[in-house]
């Protein structure tokens, strides 16, 4: 792997979003708590970084009614099982400025929209199952199944503790290709607000041997997409549509090894920014 490409991996890993957590007004019991400001990694999951926020804000809520914590942005419940960066690209990148202002709830958990998350094991289980699915797509499951449990645990702990150097030596194996063939399929999911997630089988190479690029993927998955009316965000960036998808999968995937692509309405007067 070239040095520049490694620098890209590092920079993706270190992407941050400034978030402000405010307790829902409806749930404040007596004294109103101060908001909490955190720089949250794009690559992680909210439950992993909100444990202390939860303890702090729960202290201001009626004990009798205090249940599992959940978050919303402008009325939209946030699915914790999407990486933070995906949630921000999808909902937060709407031009209301920073920090990203989220509302914290401890009551009326919307169980028909959000997965329950009672502890870190749930997040780990979800994360590993997505990694496993990605490897099935890329290598028929052979790499992940060939690893020891210790390696799975190191990947997970690297993510939890935000340690690039713990995560990537293991993840590198999942990004490996033999000389003769690349990934069998590209693990990707395409998100649009209020529409089902799109996930299909897509090969990195055309039958004529030509490398597929991001534009080919979008045309395949969203044949009716009008590029002038939508903005395509990957890791918070508008990536050139000519970029080969195999390279994107190796470098711009989230830690779960999926390309999470957000197709959103562009803001008027939008200037492309990176976080």
């Amino acid at each position: 792997m070239m040095g520049d490409d490694r620098a890209i991996l590092r920079e993706i890993w270190e992407g941050r979003i400034p978030v402000c957590f405010t307790l829902s007004k409806d749930e404040v019991e007596t004294e109103k708590p101060e908001p909490v400001f955190i720089m949250v990694a794009r690559q992680t999951y909210f439950p992993l970084v909100t444990e202390r926020v939860s303890k702090y804000l729960a202290g201001y809520v009626d004990k009798e009614k205090c249940g599992e914590m959940w978050l919303d942005y402008d009325g939209q419940p946030l699915k914790w099982h999407y990486p933070v960066g995906v949630l921000y690209d999808l909902y937060g990148n709407m031009g209301t400025g920073l920090p990203w202002k989220l509302t914290v709830h401890f009551q009326n958990f919307p169980e028909d929209e959000l997965l329950r998350c009672t502890n870190r094991d749930v997040v780990e289980s979800h994360f590993m199952s997505v990694v496993k699915e990605a490897d099935w797509l890329k290598h028929r499951g052979n790499v992940i199944n060939g690893m020891q449990k210790r390696d799975h645990k190191n990947m997970w702990m690297g993510l939890v503790n935000d340690k690039f150097d713990q995560f990537w030596p293991i993840n590198k194996k999942l990004m490996e290709t033999s000389e003769e063939e690349g990934f069998k399929h590209i693990p990707f999911r395409i998100y649009q607000v209020d529409l089902p997630v799109i996930q299909k089988l897509f090969r990195p190479v055309a039958e004529d041997g030509q490398q597929h690029c991001l534009e080919d993927l979008l045309k395949f998955a969203l044949p009716d997409l009008d590029n002038d009316k939508w903005k395509v965000l990957l890791q918070g960036m508008e990536v050139p549509l000519s970029t080969p998808v195999h390279w994107l999968s190796e470098h711009l995937s989230y830690p779960d090894n999926f390309l999470h692509i957000c197709v959103v309405v562009p803001n008027s007067g939008d200037v492309s920014v990176r976080w």
């Binding site: 699915k79 099982h81 997965l115 749930v122 780990e124 199952s129 996930q199």
Partner: peptide, 23 residues
């Protein structure tokens, strides 16, 4: 336990469902 039966997002309906893991 954590990998056999888990709550996940239904691929078509986008809602929470329990899944017997396919691996």
């Amino acid at each position: 336990r954590w990998t056999f039966l888990t709550q996940t997002e239904h691929p078509y309906l986008g809602r929470p469902f329990f899944q017997l893991h396919p691996c």
